[in-house]
Amino acid sequence: MLRLLADPLRAQIVSLLADGPACTCHLVEDTGAKQPNISNHLRLLREAGMVVAEPRGRFTYYRLVPEALDAAAGYLTDLARQARARSDARREC
């Protein structure tokens, strides 16, 4: 999940989808990226379960899955909690 969001364009797509569902043409317009590039990023996000595709007439809208972001945030929160609890525990060389 973190690796997916490390890409600036994918992070921008996720941010745009946080404002609500959008179709590829909206994302192309909002990002300035080429349609095949947007489609490739959406495919990766779909495969990771971060977005879902919803056909509407002749267009496909993409919607962010909030639970996927909650899971990633929970993972990071757990890591931060662990780091705080173990900040003084050094391993001997």
Results as ranks from 00 to 15, higher is better:
Lys34Arg: 14
Gly32Cys: 05
Gly20Trp: 07
Arg91Met: 09
Glu29Ile: 03
Tyr61Ile: 00
Leu16Cys: 08
Cys23Phe: 04
Leu27Asn: 10
Pro36Met: 01
Ser39Thr: 07
Pro8Glu: 04
Gly57Trp: 05
Pro21Trp: 07
Leu79Glu: 14
Gln35Asn: 05
Ala89His: 13
His41Asp: 03
Ser39Val: 06
Ala68Trp: 01
Met50Ser: 01
Gly49His: 06
Leu4His: 14
Arg3His: 11
Leu69Ser: 08
Glu29Ala: 15
Glu29Tyr: 09
Arg81Gly: 03
Val14Ser: 04
Gly74His: 15
Ser15Phe: 04
Ala18Met: 09
Leu76His: 09
Glu47His: 10
Arg86Thr: 14
Gln12Leu: 10
Ala22Arg: 14
Leu79His: 10
Asp7Leu: 08
Leu2Ile: 11
Ala89Thr: 07
Arg81Thr: 15
Ala68Ser: 14
Leu4Ile: 14
Arg43Val: 04
Thr31Met: 03
Leu42Met: 05
Asp19Arg: 08
Asp88Thr: 12
Ala6Lys: 15
Pro55Leu: 00
Cys25Gly: 13
Tyr61Gln: 04
Glu29Ser: 15
Tyr75His: 13
Arg63Gly: 00
Leu2Asp: 14
Asp78Met: 14
Asp78Ala: 15
Arg91Lys: 10
Arg10Trp: 01
Ser15Val: 01
Arg56Gly: 00
Leu16Gln: 11
